[in-house]
């Protein structure tokens, strides 16, 4: 009996549609996030993540609606992130049916926002999403800094120090994404994941760069992550959730396999 490591498929959502679609099962509408969520629920995913990349704030109603429709059909934990700037945004997402809300830029701009959010709703539903890039040169001791706006804006903030502070301020979980690896399918930045995971008392979700099932396993074994998040390897049918879980279990990682 032990706590299991989690596999979390992440859906990028824009204007209520899945960006690039999901092509791994017989979906009638590959762009419908609710349909994709139902399929992942049935496939035994341990959690689900929606990342809303809708540009305008006015279109947020679409997001609340799709979170609500997902919660009606999927009985699994759901994290929603993207554009969360105010306590009111969090309240609306939680009331729509999100279990955790992920805060990114707003936590960098105003660190106290994390305290206010955690005090209001509890640490358990506040995930702080940390986008980091390695800034040290080859041969130097590794160092990472926070970047915002999809990796375009540098902040000069040390990622590990920031992670520790976020956990102290009330984040119940940290989602750590390597902006160097995101989209490259070359594996997590294991140094980044491990340095943060070993420095904080809260669970760390590794993200950014998954291209193979071995990458997922290394995120846990070498990155010390409690959960691994991936997008394209699942969405485009390269691997099923069951294959991923079986692979991690074979590598000696505690997984939940009784999902049917």
């Amino acid at each position: 009996m032990t706590l299991k490591n989690r596999i979390i498929p992440c859906l990028d959502v824009k204007d209520g549609r899945v960006v690039k679609g999901v092509q791994f099962v017989d979906l009638i509408d590959a762009g419908d996030p609710v349909e994709a969520a139902i399929a992942y629920d049935a496939a035994g995913a341990d959690e689900l993540c929606f990342l809303d990349i809708t540009a305008s704030h006015e279109d947020r109603a679409t997001l609340f609606d799709l979170v609500a429709r997902t919660a009606e059909h999927c009985f699994m934990p759901l994290t929603v992130g993207g554009g969360v700037r105010a306590v009111e945004d969090i309240r609306k997402l939680l009331l729509s049916g999100a279990d955790k809300v992920s805060i990114n830029t707003a936590a960098v701009r105003d660190r106290d926002f994390v305290n206010r959010a955690a005090d209001k709703f509890g640490n358990q539903c506040i995930t702080v999403s940390i986008d980091a890039k390695r800034v040290s040169a080859e041969g130097e001791p590794p160092r990472w800094e926070i970047f915002t706006h999809g990796g375009r804006n540098e902040t000069g903030i040390d990622a590990v120090e920031f992670a520790v502070e976020m956990a102290e301020r009330g984040a119940g979980e940290l989602l750590v994404t390597s902006m160097d690896r995101d989209g490259t399918q070359s594996g997590f930045d294991l140094g980044l994941t491990r340095t943060i995971a070993d420095a904080v008392p809260v669970p760390v979700v590794a993200s950014g760069g998954v291209g193979s099932l071995d990458d997922l396993a290394e995120g846990v074994l070498k990155g010390h992550a409690s959960a691994v998040l991936a997008a394209s390897i699942f969405h485009f049918g390269r691997f099923s959730i069951a294959e991923a879980k079986a692979h991690l279990a074979k590598a000696g990682i505690p997984m939940r396999l009784d999902t049917a």
């Binding site: 706590l3 299991k4 490591n5 341990d46 669970p203 409690s226 959960a227 939940r256």
Partner: peptide, 15 residues
């Protein structure tokens, strides 16, 4: 065990 994170978050077996 300091390796055990708080919150206890995720799927665990029930006896």
């Amino acid at each position: 065990d300091p390796a055990l994170k708080i919150p206890h978050m995720g799927w665990n077996e029930v006896a």
